[in-house]
Design a protein around this nucleic acid. Structure first.
Lengths: 140, 140
DNA sequence: AATAGATAGTTACCCTAACTAACTATTTTA
DNA sequence: TAAAATAGTTAGTTAGGGTAACTATCTATT
Protein backbone atom coordinates (compact mmCIF):
# COMPACT_ATOMS: atom_id res chain seq x y z
CA UNK A 1 0.00 0.00 0.00
CA UNK A 2 1.03 3.61 -0.66
CA UNK A 3 1.40 6.54 1.58
CA UNK A 4 -1.41 5.84 4.01
CA UNK A 5 -1.58 8.48 6.72
CA UNK A 6 -4.41 10.90 6.11
CA UNK A 7 -3.25 14.48 5.84
CA UNK A 8 -4.81 17.52 7.40
CA UNK A 9 -6.75 18.03 4.18
CA UNK A 10 -8.03 14.46 4.13
CA UNK A 11 -9.27 14.89 7.69
CA UNK A 12 -10.76 18.22 6.80
CA UNK A 13 -12.78 16.77 3.97
CA UNK A 14 -13.79 13.60 5.82
CA UNK A 15 -15.49 15.68 8.44
CA UNK A 16 -17.57 17.77 6.07
CA UNK A 17 -20.57 15.56 5.22
CA UNK A 18 -21.11 14.16 8.71
CA UNK A 19 -20.85 17.68 10.09
CA UNK A 20 -23.29 19.26 7.64
CA UNK A 21 -25.76 16.42 8.02
CA UNK A 22 -25.69 16.72 11.80
CA UNK A 23 -26.25 20.47 11.64
CA UNK A 24 -29.02 20.07 9.06
CA UNK A 25 -30.79 17.59 11.32
CA UNK A 26 -30.88 20.20 14.05
CA UNK A 27 -31.99 22.97 11.71
CA UNK A 28 -34.76 20.82 10.23
CA UNK A 29 -37.26 21.58 12.99
CA UNK A 30 -37.38 25.13 11.63
CA UNK A 31 -37.25 24.01 7.99
CA UNK A 32 -33.74 25.38 7.49
CA UNK A 33 -30.54 24.08 5.92
CA UNK A 34 -26.98 25.13 6.68
CA UNK A 35 -26.74 27.36 3.61
CA UNK A 36 -29.75 29.32 4.80
CA UNK A 37 -28.54 29.25 8.38
CA UNK A 38 -25.26 30.89 7.39
CA UNK A 39 -27.18 33.74 5.78
CA UNK A 40 -29.66 34.04 8.63
CA UNK A 41 -26.73 34.26 11.04
CA UNK A 42 -25.09 36.99 8.99
CA UNK A 43 -28.31 39.00 8.83
CA UNK A 44 -28.64 38.71 12.58
CA UNK A 45 -25.07 39.90 13.14
CA UNK A 46 -25.32 42.81 10.72
CA UNK A 47 -28.89 43.62 11.75
CA UNK A 48 -29.69 44.91 8.26
CA UNK A 49 -27.86 44.51 4.98
CA UNK A 50 -28.28 44.27 1.24
CA UNK A 51 -28.21 41.10 -0.80
CA UNK A 52 -24.99 42.27 -2.41
CA UNK A 53 -23.30 42.50 0.99
CA UNK A 54 -24.51 39.01 1.85
CA UNK A 55 -23.14 37.71 -1.43
CA UNK A 56 -19.80 39.33 -0.82
CA UNK A 57 -19.39 38.19 2.77
CA UNK A 58 -20.54 34.63 2.21
CA UNK A 59 -18.61 34.43 -1.07
CA UNK A 60 -21.67 33.03 -2.77
CA UNK A 61 -22.95 34.37 -6.09
CA UNK A 62 -25.88 36.78 -6.13
CA UNK A 63 -28.40 34.38 -7.66
CA UNK A 64 -27.75 31.93 -4.84
CA UNK A 65 -28.33 34.67 -2.27
CA UNK A 66 -31.55 35.65 -4.01
CA UNK A 67 -32.81 32.09 -3.71
CA UNK A 68 -31.84 31.81 -0.05
CA UNK A 69 -33.55 35.09 0.81
CA UNK A 70 -36.68 34.06 -1.07
CA UNK A 71 -36.81 30.92 1.05
CA UNK A 72 -36.21 32.83 4.28
CA UNK A 73 -39.01 35.23 3.36
CA UNK A 74 -41.37 32.35 2.59
CA UNK A 75 -40.60 30.99 6.05
CA UNK A 76 -41.32 34.42 7.50
CA UNK A 77 -37.88 34.72 9.09
CA UNK A 78 -36.75 37.85 7.23
CA UNK A 79 -38.32 40.90 5.67
CA UNK A 80 -37.16 43.36 3.08
CA UNK A 81 -37.05 47.14 3.06
CA UNK A 82 -36.50 49.17 -0.05
CA UNK A 83 -33.22 51.07 0.13
CA UNK A 84 -32.90 54.79 -0.56
CA UNK A 85 -30.97 53.66 -3.59
CA UNK A 86 -33.90 51.98 -5.28
CA UNK A 87 -31.80 49.15 -6.65
CA UNK A 88 -31.01 47.97 -3.15
CA UNK A 89 -33.03 45.75 -0.85
CA UNK A 90 -32.23 45.71 2.85
CA UNK A 91 -32.92 42.44 4.62
CA UNK A 92 -33.57 42.10 8.33
CA UNK A 93 -34.94 39.50 10.72
CA UNK A 94 -38.63 39.48 11.56
CA UNK A 95 -39.65 38.95 15.15
CA UNK A 96 -40.25 35.28 14.36
CA UNK A 97 -36.88 35.10 12.61
CA UNK A 98 -35.11 36.53 15.64
CA UNK A 99 -36.80 33.97 17.89
CA UNK A 100 -35.89 31.08 15.63
CA UNK A 101 -32.36 32.37 15.30
CA UNK A 102 -31.90 32.69 19.05
CA UNK A 103 -33.29 29.24 19.70
CA UNK A 104 -31.17 27.54 17.06
CA UNK A 105 -28.11 29.51 18.09
CA UNK A 106 -28.45 28.10 21.58
CA UNK A 107 -29.02 24.58 20.39
CA UNK A 108 -26.11 24.64 17.97
CA UNK A 109 -23.74 26.14 20.54
CA UNK A 110 -24.53 23.34 22.86
CA UNK A 111 -24.11 20.80 20.08
CA UNK A 112 -20.71 22.28 19.21
CA UNK A 113 -19.72 22.10 22.86
CA UNK A 114 -20.62 18.43 22.95
CA UNK A 115 -18.56 17.81 19.84
CA UNK A 116 -15.48 19.38 21.40
CA UNK A 117 -15.86 18.24 24.98
CA UNK A 118 -12.59 16.81 26.24
CA UNK A 119 -10.50 18.61 23.65
CA UNK A 120 -7.97 21.09 25.01
CA UNK A 121 -9.32 24.58 24.45
CA UNK A 122 -5.94 25.86 23.29
CA UNK A 123 -5.96 23.16 20.65
CA UNK A 124 -9.42 24.26 19.55
CA UNK A 125 -8.19 27.82 19.25
CA UNK A 126 -5.14 26.66 17.30
CA UNK A 127 -7.44 24.77 14.93
CA UNK A 128 -9.62 27.81 14.39
CA UNK A 129 -6.61 29.99 13.66
CA UNK A 130 -5.02 27.45 11.30
CA UNK A 131 -8.26 27.07 9.31
CA UNK A 132 -8.44 30.85 9.00
CA UNK A 133 -4.84 31.07 7.89
CA UNK A 134 -5.46 28.48 5.18
CA UNK A 135 -8.55 30.36 4.04
CA UNK A 136 -6.61 33.61 3.84
CA UNK A 137 -3.91 31.93 1.79
CA UNK A 138 -6.53 30.47 -0.50
CA UNK A 139 -8.17 33.84 -1.07
CA UNK A 140 -4.94 35.72 -1.66
CA UNK B 1 -24.41 43.67 16.92
CA UNK B 2 -24.49 40.22 18.55
CA UNK B 3 -21.84 37.76 19.40
CA UNK B 4 -19.49 38.39 16.51
CA UNK B 5 -16.40 36.24 16.77
CA UNK B 6 -16.49 33.34 14.36
CA UNK B 7 -16.22 29.99 16.09
CA UNK B 8 -14.15 27.02 15.03
CA UNK B 9 -17.19 25.69 13.22
CA UNK B 10 -17.77 28.96 11.36
CA UNK B 11 -14.16 28.93 10.21
CA UNK B 12 -14.45 25.29 9.28
CA UNK B 13 -17.42 25.91 7.03
CA UNK B 14 -16.09 29.15 5.54
CA UNK B 15 -13.12 27.28 4.21
CA UNK B 16 -15.05 24.53 2.50
CA UNK B 17 -16.18 26.04 -0.81
CA UNK B 18 -12.94 27.89 -1.59
CA UNK B 19 -11.02 24.73 -0.75
CA UNK B 20 -13.12 22.39 -2.88
CA UNK B 21 -13.15 24.81 -5.80
CA UNK B 22 -9.38 25.16 -5.70
CA UNK B 23 -8.93 21.39 -5.63
CA UNK B 24 -11.47 20.89 -8.41
CA UNK B 25 -9.59 23.39 -10.58
CA UNK B 26 -6.48 21.26 -10.26
CA UNK B 27 -8.33 18.02 -10.89
CA UNK B 28 -10.06 19.41 -13.97
CA UNK B 29 -7.15 18.74 -16.32
CA UNK B 30 -7.90 15.04 -15.85
CA UNK B 31 -11.67 15.54 -15.91
CA UNK B 32 -12.05 14.70 -12.23
CA UNK B 33 -13.91 16.22 -9.28
CA UNK B 34 -13.09 15.89 -5.59
CA UNK B 35 -15.74 13.24 -4.98
CA UNK B 36 -14.13 11.05 -7.63
CA UNK B 37 -10.66 11.91 -6.44
CA UNK B 38 -11.44 10.69 -2.94
CA UNK B 39 -12.51 7.34 -4.37
CA UNK B 40 -9.57 7.11 -6.78
CA UNK B 41 -7.25 7.76 -3.87
CA UNK B 42 -8.85 5.03 -1.78
CA UNK B 43 -8.59 2.53 -4.63
CA UNK B 44 -4.93 3.40 -5.00
CA UNK B 45 -4.28 2.92 -1.29
CA UNK B 46 -6.18 -0.36 -1.03
CA UNK B 47 -4.94 -1.56 -4.42
CA UNK B 48 -8.16 -3.51 -5.01
CA UNK B 49 -11.51 -3.39 -3.27
CA UNK B 50 -15.22 -3.84 -3.72
CA UNK B 51 -17.76 -1.06 -4.15
CA UNK B 52 -19.24 -1.95 -0.79
CA UNK B 53 -15.87 -1.36 0.90
CA UNK B 54 -15.58 1.98 -0.85
CA UNK B 55 -19.06 2.94 0.29
CA UNK B 56 -18.28 1.99 3.86
CA UNK B 57 -14.93 3.78 4.06
CA UNK B 58 -16.04 6.96 2.34
CA UNK B 59 -19.36 6.94 4.23
CA UNK B 60 -21.19 7.50 0.98
CA UNK B 61 -24.20 5.43 -0.07
CA UNK B 62 -23.76 2.61 -2.56
CA UNK B 63 -25.62 4.29 -5.44
CA UNK B 64 -23.24 7.23 -5.20
CA UNK B 65 -20.26 4.90 -5.34
CA UNK B 66 -21.73 3.10 -8.35
CA UNK B 67 -21.97 6.40 -10.21
CA UNK B 68 -18.45 7.46 -9.30
CA UNK B 69 -17.01 4.11 -10.42
CA UNK B 70 -18.97 4.31 -13.69
CA UNK B 71 -17.40 7.68 -14.32
CA UNK B 72 -13.89 6.49 -13.43
CA UNK B 73 -14.32 3.53 -15.80
CA UNK B 74 -15.51 5.82 -18.61
CA UNK B 75 -12.34 7.85 -18.07
CA UNK B 76 -10.30 4.63 -18.23
CA UNK B 77 -8.80 5.18 -14.79
CA UNK B 78 -10.14 2.01 -13.13
CA UNK B 79 -11.15 -1.48 -14.17
CA UNK B 80 -13.33 -4.12 -12.63
CA UNK B 81 -12.75 -7.78 -11.89
CA UNK B 82 -15.50 -10.19 -11.00
CA UNK B 83 -15.06 -11.46 -7.44
CA UNK B 84 -15.18 -15.13 -6.50
CA UNK B 85 -18.40 -14.19 -4.77
CA UNK B 86 -20.29 -13.35 -7.93
CA UNK B 87 -22.13 -10.45 -6.32
CA UNK B 88 -18.89 -8.60 -5.77
CA UNK B 89 -16.92 -6.41 -8.14
CA UNK B 90 -13.31 -5.63 -7.37
CA UNK B 91 -12.07 -2.26 -8.60
CA UNK B 92 -8.43 -1.44 -9.31
CA UNK B 93 -6.48 1.28 -11.07
CA UNK B 94 -5.57 0.85 -14.72
CA UNK B 95 -2.07 1.81 -15.83
CA UNK B 96 -3.45 5.13 -17.02
CA UNK B 97 -5.29 5.57 -13.73
CA UNK B 98 -2.11 4.97 -11.77
CA UNK B 99 -0.28 7.57 -13.85
CA UNK B 100 -3.00 10.15 -13.41
CA UNK B 101 -3.21 9.42 -9.72
CA UNK B 102 0.53 9.81 -9.22
CA UNK B 103 0.63 13.05 -11.15
CA UNK B 104 -2.30 14.61 -9.33
CA UNK B 105 -1.05 13.35 -6.00
CA UNK B 106 2.19 15.26 -6.58
CA UNK B 107 0.45 18.39 -7.70
CA UNK B 108 -2.00 18.40 -4.81
CA UNK B 109 0.72 17.75 -2.24
CA UNK B 110 2.58 20.73 -3.48
CA UNK B 111 -0.59 22.82 -3.46
CA UNK B 112 -1.31 21.78 0.13
CA UNK B 113 2.25 22.70 1.07
CA UNK B 114 1.76 26.15 -0.40
CA UNK B 115 -1.45 26.58 1.55
CA UNK B 116 0.25 25.80 4.83
CA UNK B 117 3.61 27.44 4.27
CA UNK B 118 4.54 29.57 7.26
CA UNK B 119 2.22 27.72 9.62
CA UNK B 120 3.89 25.94 12.52
CA UNK B 121 3.93 22.23 11.77
CA UNK B 122 2.91 21.34 15.30
CA UNK B 123 -0.13 23.54 14.85
CA UNK B 124 -0.95 21.72 11.61
CA UNK B 125 -0.70 18.41 13.40
CA UNK B 126 -2.89 19.71 16.21
CA UNK B 127 -5.46 20.79 13.64
CA UNK B 128 -5.45 17.39 11.99
CA UNK B 129 -5.90 15.64 15.32
CA UNK B 130 -8.69 17.98 16.45
CA UNK B 131 -10.62 17.51 13.21
CA UNK B 132 -10.32 13.75 13.64
CA UNK B 133 -11.48 13.93 17.23
CA UNK B 134 -14.54 15.91 16.19
CA UNK B 135 -15.28 13.40 13.45
CA UNK B 136 -15.00 10.50 15.89
CA UNK B 137 -17.37 12.24 18.29
CA UNK B 138 -19.80 12.87 15.45
CA UNK B 139 -19.77 9.22 14.38
CA UNK B 140 -20.13 7.83 17.89
C1' DA C 1 -27.95 67.14 -20.08
C1' DA C 2 -27.20 62.89 -22.49
C1' DT C 3 -25.30 58.72 -22.68
C1' DA C 4 -22.12 55.02 -21.53
C1' DG C 5 -20.74 52.18 -17.97
C1' DA C 6 -21.32 50.16 -13.37
C1' DT C 7 -24.17 48.06 -9.80
C1' DA C 8 -28.32 45.49 -7.48
C1' DG C 9 -31.19 42.09 -8.07
C1' DT C 10 -33.78 38.42 -10.76
C1' DT C 11 -34.81 34.60 -13.98
C1' DA C 12 -33.70 30.55 -16.44
C1' DC C 13 -30.95 26.87 -16.84
C1' DC C 14 -27.03 23.87 -15.63
C1' DC C 15 -23.94 21.03 -12.64
C1' DT C 16 -21.99 18.30 -8.62
C1' DA C 17 -22.73 15.56 -4.88
C1' DA C 18 -25.29 13.41 -2.44
C1' DC C 19 -29.82 10.85 -0.82
C1' DT C 20 -33.91 7.12 -0.63
C1' DA C 21 -36.78 3.47 -2.52
C1' DA C 22 -37.12 -0.32 -5.01
C1' DC C 23 -35.16 -3.62 -7.73
C1' DT C 24 -32.02 -8.13 -9.39
C1' DA C 25 -28.69 -11.52 -8.50
C1' DT C 26 -26.31 -13.99 -5.51
C1' DT C 27 -24.87 -16.03 -0.95
C1' DT C 28 -25.68 -17.31 3.92
C1' DT C 29 -28.24 -19.03 7.59
C1' DA C 30 -31.90 -21.06 10.36
C1' DT D 1 -34.67 -25.50 1.37
C1' DA D 2 -36.91 -21.26 2.34
C1' DA D 3 -35.93 -16.81 4.46
C1' DA D 4 -32.80 -13.32 5.32
C1' DA D 5 -28.78 -10.83 4.19
C1' DT D 6 -25.51 -8.72 0.97
C1' DA D 7 -23.60 -6.53 -3.52
C1' DG D 8 -24.67 -3.75 -6.87
C1' DT D 9 -27.90 -1.04 -10.04
C1' DT D 10 -31.69 2.03 -11.65
C1' DA D 11 -34.82 5.76 -11.13
C1' DG D 12 -36.04 9.73 -9.15
C1' DT D 13 -35.17 13.58 -5.68
C1' DT D 14 -32.74 17.16 -3.16
C1' DA D 15 -29.29 20.72 -1.48
C1' DG D 16 -26.24 23.87 -2.85
C1' DG D 17 -24.15 26.33 -5.91
C1' DG D 18 -22.66 28.20 -10.66
C1' DT D 19 -23.10 31.11 -15.40
C1' DA D 20 -25.48 33.88 -18.86
C1' DA D 21 -28.49 37.15 -19.79
C1' DC D 22 -31.76 40.24 -18.42
C1' DT D 23 -34.18 44.80 -16.05
C1' DA D 24 -33.90 48.79 -13.29
C1' DT D 25 -31.36 52.22 -11.32
C1' DC D 26 -27.43 55.03 -10.34
C1' DT D 27 -22.80 57.36 -11.49
C1' DA D 28 -19.52 59.47 -14.23
C1' DT D 29 -17.81 61.51 -18.56
C1' DT D 30 -18.10 64.14 -22.24
Amino acid sequence: MNNLEPTLFDSYRDLYRPYVNAVNNRLAKHQLYTSQWVVLRLISIKESCTLAELAKETRVEKPSVTRIIQKLMELGYVEIKQGEDKREKYVQLTERGAEVYASLQLELSSFFNELTVGIDSEDLETTRVVLNQILQKLLS
